[in-house]
Amino acid sequence: MSENYRNNFLKEVEERVEEGHWVKMCMQCGVCAGSCPLGAHWAHPPQELFMMIRAGKREEVLTSDSMWMCTSCYNCVVRCPRKLPITHIMHGLANLAYRLGLSPKNQTTQKFASMFWNNLAQTGRVNELKLSLGMYFKDGFGQGIKNAMAMQSVGLGMVKAKRLNPMELFGGHGIKDKSGFHAMLKKAREIEDRRKNFA
């Protein structure tokens, strides 16, 4: 309790979260919370998250699934009278939580985000077939089969329309200079780690 309503966590957020320096500028009007189309599904709307950061509730903020609910509709950003880039801050907070290993396990958005990234980082291109199959099977083999059967007609239709190539399941195509791409990502990660003070 001794750390509450102090600058510590706010400072950490400013340092390690994309656009985190905006958090202190929130004036608690609640327009973001009222504007969010998914607002009812958030345990803590952005206004509350900002207050929690200022109140020093590090654990509660970073383990929350709230910021993972953001769908990037930008309604809040458009409406914020203080012009806070709320959407970016939500993604920044989610990212920090994930990097610290505090984000809620099995949160769907988070799962999808990491699958998407891993999929992309491998070949430099998103393999849509593997990505969607990965999502179908994320809750186990049985559920995966059920999901696949439910989407059967859509899938076959896409194959017929040549929007989906079943052969992509075996490897798939990537970009030309894959090792260069990997080196670039590695370097970017190093820079980010240094900047955001990750070991």
Partner: peptide, 14 residues
């Protein structure tokens, strides 16, 4: 002036 206070890191809590 309020905004300036926030920029300087004064914590406001309702």
């Amino acid at each position: 002036f309020y905004r300036s206070g926030q920029e300087k890191g004064v914590i406001f809590t309702k």
